[in-house]
Amino acid sequence: MFDFMQLVANENMKTYRRIRTWIMLGILLVLAAGTTIVFYSITDEIPNMWMVTELEATFLSSLITIFVVIVAAESVASEFSTGTIKLLLIRPWSRSKILLSKYISLMLLAVFFTAVVFVFTVLMNMIVFGYSSELELAVGSADNMAPLPYMLMFYLYNFISLVVVATLAFMISSVFRSSGLAIGLSIFLTVGGGNILVAVLGMFQADLVDYILFTHLDITGHLSAGETEYTLGFSLGVLAVYYAIFMVLAWYVFKKRDVAA
């Protein structure tokens, strides 16, 4: 087990020794700070700190997803495109474990980005707008929950979607060895393309829409007391099935593949 963590350490080194990763984190923090500053300067009345935090969480989660998708897409594909895959695989480790080390390292990066953004935005908004024990939301309400648990759940639900989308990108990266395709397809499908697909399909096969991944990617609606079309359990179930398919495909192809490049 200790030896396996060495593989994860390698993947981490390849991620954090690149300036790219730190630029991504910098962009997230600058945007968060920028949003708070804008709110502070344009509003007459001091806004509720949790409202600003939730707003930032909503768009920063999308951005974290995009950044993690970029790293996921490059993770396998770039080893092929630069040829380093050959030296990586000829070690006394099975291909499955090498792929797993990459996946774990990717998940650690997702946790790292998410945790930093969470702590940063909560602390910053608390300092700027003052602590509030009451939860006020821009849209909807969640009267039955305390602010901090709500925010943690909000981040958790976004994180679940992030994991599924990042795994999709990771799978495409492993199957097609093309980071461009993995980034393009994952982001297109998440940011709108998926909804178009759902809408078009809905015109012909309305009952199939229930089982499309993109119908269930945003599950944060279950947190506030609004009407939701599906139960949380059903949405999580559909996500789990897609997740399992992505994982099996990624591993199966990676294990079987002849490295000819």
Binding site: D3, L7, M13, K14, T82, G83, K86, L87, R91
Partner: peptide, 28 residues
């Protein structure tokens, strides 16, 4: 086995030492 298959492709954004450390970690 130790091998170089075709060109010795390394991680260009890492130093030579970090590249060696990378492969060293893979063998106890």
């Amino acid at each position: 086995v130790g091998a170089i298959v075709e060109n010795p492709e390394m991680y260009k954004y890492l130093t030579g030492y970090q590249n060696l450390l990378h492969y060293a970690r893979m063998i106890p």
